[in-house]
Design a binder for these strands. Structure first.
Length: 572
DNA sequence: GCCGTTTTCGGCCCGACTGTTTTCAGTCG
């Protein structure tokens, strides 16, 4: 039983208790415990073996008992009893935006509606508006909510949301009544997919700002409009929340709207213990009622007794505790990156010539760049055969003599074939500076088979890096069925580097795996997999993944200067 | 249900907006 499976059961218990109308704090206790377990760095079974379950924050007598039971039997009695009592459909209904546990219960108690389908029918036939506390508008909002989850709209690539948000920030900033406009929310935390765009605006005249904002042509629908907060849906379907605050509240508001909710909650309970109330306007001293308007987020953290925490790790996965012990990671930065080790040229399916790529990399301030075109079996990408690769090596040799200020490394993205073998023999691979190995075929194979293919590749002494290890495409293709725990172990044993692929629709490995890999002492390489020179700029997405994964400069090999990098690559 | 550098009992983050209400509950982030 894995951590996330236990967390799931605890979340489900919380959901069912909520529908039953149980004590709010009891519900929260289950959610807290689930969140902690979900983000545990180690296998929960290990804690059980050490009899240390209760050392997990939020796990006490009752919940630890249930965890023991779940580990032993796969489930627990309390969970089964709740499932028998609360229809599954009611829990599903919690996913409908605008509809919560209280109203779900009213609907169920009065009309015995226990599925989203029945709910939609009842709403369309105007039955819901007859119930206490539900009127025409709520009924309409339930219909909209159901349509929204059916359309699966709601998650957007970071890159997509970021460009929309940046454009809006530019236009908001140019309004005369606006002092400052900034991106907040999960977008500022650089989550790989975001559900909405949070924008924070500093102004003394919120009404003017709101009026101008609502005239933006891409707005399809206004969901909420108050004196400080406006929510809209754009034509693209993405929701934008605009919050307007006065200048003195900017820093408190930025912290509040950057979140995450869990991070904020933890900070506020901490504040309370110090006799302070933290909200989006400032810090209030509960003794004398005096309000402090902090000048920066850093000042707020300082007030709470800890150093600044970067937005990327504000997820309540241990960052507050680490900050209080002054053991936060010294997070890797974009400027630490000295080269890119996975790039395609026009020799295979890329667009730019090797020279163009090298010059572009030089312009970015890189020390080195690796050319890693596809290997021969990947026909669709015009993969290189031995002969063509040999000619490419000669060209790279010539270009290195011709171009100053950047080193071009020879390389290949060698296919891990369906039959376990690599697409080139070792006598070819050992001639190259960088060998990146990856899977492009046989995605549907069974777990053991795919995992075995990757582990076999790790065991090859010529393979330096495993590229896009899980093969996922965000929002389009699930990862292939691979046991990443075993892959991480294999990398650790064979001194193989894992890639953090920076392509915005890959981000593979993700932040959580990166953090696990670091815990095992693995090295990672942040690469773009660019197919045109300009896309070398995508490296920032990979750096954000690394930062979210608590990585430091030393965890990332392409922060090394050229000579050290070569030594590292040759050390396997 | 959990927790304690005031506490083993009595707290538990905070505020905005909407809709259905005659003063507030539900939902959200």
């Amino acid at each position: 039983m894995k951590n996330h499976e236990i967390a799931y059961i605890l979340y489900e218990i919380a959901n069912m208790l909520e529908i039953k109308g149980e004590n709010f704090f009891k519900i929260r206790a289950y959610r807290n415990a689930a969140h902690e377990i979900e983000n545990l760095a180690i296998d929960i079974q290990k804690l059980v073996n050490q009899n240390a379950l209760k050392e997990i924050d939020g796990v006490g007598e009752a919940i630890s008992g249930k965890i023991y039971e779940i580990l032993e039997k796969g489930t627990c009695r309390y969970y089964e009893e709740l499932k028998a009592e609360v229809p599954r459909g009611l829990v599903d209904m919690l996913k409908i935006p605008g509809l919560g546990a209280k109203r779900i219960k009213v609907i169920y108690d009065n009309l015995k509606i226990a599925s989203i389908e029945e709910l939609e029918k009842a709403a369309n036939s105007k039955q819901l508006q007859t119930l206490p506390g539900i009127g025409v508008k709520t009924e309409q909002s339930i219909i909209r909510g159901i349509q929204m989850i059916k359309g699966r709209a709601g998650r957007y690539l970071l890159s997509t949301a970021l460009s929309i948000a940046q454009d809006m920030v530019t236009r908001l900033s140019s309004l005369p009544s606006v002092e400052k406009a900034q991106i907040a929310g999960s977008l500022r935390r650089k989550k790989e997919m975001v559900g909405d765009i949070d924008l924070l605006v500093v102004s003394n005249s919120h009404q003017q700002v709101t009026e101008s904002f609502l005239k933006f042509p891409e707005i399809r629908e206004v969901i909420a409009k108050g004196s400080t907060k406006t929510s809209v849906i754009l034509e693209l379907g993405i929701q934008v929340d605009l919050r307007v605050v006065k200048p003195e509240s900017f820093s408190a508001a930025l912290l509040h709207f950057t979140g995450s909710k869990e991070h904020n909650t933890k900070l506020r309970s901490l504040a309370l213990r110090k006799g302070l109330r933290l909200n989006e306007y400032g810090i209030i001293n509960l003794d004398d009622g005096e309000i402090i308007y902090p000048q920066s987020e850093k000042e707020i953290y300082k007030e709470l007794g800890m150093p600044y925490i970067i937005p990327e790790i504000r997820e309540d996965t241990g960052e507050v505790e680490a900050a209080m012990k002054d053991s936060l990671p010294n997070s890797v930065n974009l400027k630490d990156i000295k080269g890119d080790l996975h790039v395609h040229s026009n020799w295979s399916d890329g667009v730019s010539s090797i020279e163009e790529i090298a010059l572009y990399a030089k312009k970015l301030g890189y020390e080195y760049i690796a050319i890693t075109d596809h290997s021969k079996s990947l026909k669709i990408a015009r993969g290189l055969d031995e002969e063509k690769l040999k000619r490419q090596l000669e060209l790279i040799y010539e270009l290195n003599k011709k171009i100053d200020g950047i080193k071009i490394l020879s390389g290949i993205e060698v296919d891990i074939l369906s039959n376990n073998l690599l697409d080139f023999n070792d006598d070819i691979l050992e001639q190259l500076d960088v060998v990146v190995a990856s899977i492009h075929t046989g995605f549907k194979q069974e777990r053991d088979k795919i995992t075995g293919r990757i582990i076999r590749a790790c065991e090859n002494p010529n393979v330096d890096i495993i590229a896009h290890p899980t093969g996922r495409l965000l929002g389009r293709r699930a990862p292939y069925d691979v046991d990443m725990e075993l892959v991480l172990q294999a990398c650790a044993q064979t001194n193989t580097i894992l890639e953090i692929n920076s392509s915005p629709d890959r981000l593979d490995i993700n932040d959580k795996l990166a953090r696990k890999a670091k815990a095992l002492g693995l090295k990672m390489s942040i690469n773009t997999d660019a197919h045109v020179a300009e896309r070398l700029n995508d490296i920032k997405y990979g750096v954000w993944v690394a930062r979210r994964g608590w990585l430091e400069k030393d965890d990332v090999i392409n922060t090394l200067p050229f000579e050290c990098l070569l030594k590292e690559l040759n050390s396997k």
